[in-house]
Design a protein around this nucleic acid. Structure first.
Lengths: 254, 254
DNA sequence: TAGTGGTCTAGACCACCGT
DNA sequence: CGGTGGTCTAGACCACTAT
């Protein structure tokens, strides 16, 4: 009501508009949005469509519903979720930074027990192991060791060593899209190999993310470990009773 | 159809049943569930109700929808999301472990810049700072430093120092429920204070989670830092194009 | 082309919150 | 009590996938 009614045919448009209005400060943190019914009238859609849009905002941790009271604004910050920005490169670009990558080693080998289990291939099957460093605006922030199953090995090996987005290449050139990924996050001390590639003291703390990616058909694409330098990248979670949103963040918020 | 039709009035029952069937292996990873229409007939509900249930499974990272193809089973493991198990103690109990806690210090002070911003109070307002260690089955796994705003300080200070679940007490005794929380996850070296309380070498890697919790009304409840020993607790993320689920895990999966 | 999920509509009843 | 979100129904059309 505070802004003129805008035509919105889909719940995405309603979401986009509500998101903009929240980010712009029209609805402050801790305040309630107009009721679903009012929003439906405002946008000229059915209530279900509004609820669909609100669910999207809740997924991003921006609002949370309180029965009987309304939708409360929890955060006025617009964050994109972990899988919306599937790759390191996509995420970097969305932050206005330039992603880079450099392959240090690409070796054919046979799957270890863990690799075989994660990639759902037979133990000792052929895999391609790639070691890359990743940069933001030219600064090294992450070391990545990834194992690819045989059906992808040849195509991965053909990618230029300084390609900044392997995931983009896989999607656009090979038609292989990541639909789902499991991550395990913990902290580890830098090994001597890590310290050489990342330029930090041995045994200094690194944030480790172990990752298995899958196609929409549930077929494993890769299993890998990312090791992030501290104070360069932080993982953020907006957790509400409705859902969780995981986000990468450029810098640790004080 | 493989099992007899069961009466299911709400989407929660449908969700529960589908979840059980997936965990039981009736639908294997990588395979498609019966179509929404078929499921609706099977359970005797409308298609929308089935979709509601499926969305819940997708939130847990167990299935993901593929337009034109069906709902693909991504994981047959039942995990509970980060906020379903709001507190350390609730999570520990769900894993069959015994949570413990011990307050090492509880001091009244004035809010630092960061604390004031996170708790949305005036700088130098009174806060209560509590330092606790947390144990699983008697073993120390985490060190927690939390700041509470003035409106909660008195009640928090009255909690016994060895209370195993502060969140439970806040909810059941004070009626203060966490509806939303922001987390930032990174890695830090152990300070000398950390090393003394956690029993590790100084500068050894710790997983740090900085956390701000809010009531359903968006009012900040606490701001704190948790520092986890490595190899005791891992954070897991099931990320799909639909949503993310963050989970704590007792032990790092090889 | 047949079947699947994605989306939208319009209406209904309930549980819950604040006044 | 009136208003709000939570849920469910029944039907419709579209875009996409598989065959």
């Amino acid at each position: 009501m505070t802004s003129p009614p805008r035509p919105a045919s889909s719940h995405r448009e309603v979401l986009r508009d509500l998101l903009a209005r929240i980010v712009d400060g029209e609805f402050g943190a801790g305040t309630a949005l107009p009721s679903e019914t009012r929003l439906a009238e405002h946008y000229g859609v059915a209530r279900g469509t509004v609820r669909n849009a609100l669910a999207g905002l809740a997924d991003r941790g921006m609002v949370s519903p309180v029965q009987g009271a309304g939708w409360i604004v929890q955060s006025t910050l617009h964050t994109q979720s972990f899988v919306e920005l599937r790759s390191f490169a996509q995420w970097a670009r969305s932050k206005g930074m330039t992603p880079g990558g450099l392959v240090h080693a690409a070796e054919h080998g046979t799957a270890s027990g863990t690799e075989a289990r994660k990639l759902r291939v037979a133990p000792r099957s052929p895999v391609l192991r790639v070691t890359r460093t990743r940069t933001l605006d030219g600064r090294v922030v992450m070391l990545e060791r990834t194992a690819y199953p045989e059906w992808l090995a040849e195509r991965i090996a053909a990618i230029p060593p300084d390609e900044s987005s392997v995931v983009d290449v896989m999607q656009t050139e090979f038609g292989v899209t990541t639909a789902h990924a499991d991550h395990a996050i913990d902290a580890v001390p830098a090994s001597s190999a890590d310290s050489a590639l990342l330029g930090v003291r041995r045994s200094s703390p690194l944030l480790r993310v172990r990752r298995t990616s899958f196609t929409s058909g549930g077929r494993p694409i890769e299993y890998g470990e990312d090791r992030y330098l501290p104070d360069t990248v932080t993982f953020q979670v907006q957790a509400s009773s409705v859902s969780n949103t995981l986000t990468r963040s450029e810098f640790s918020p004080g």
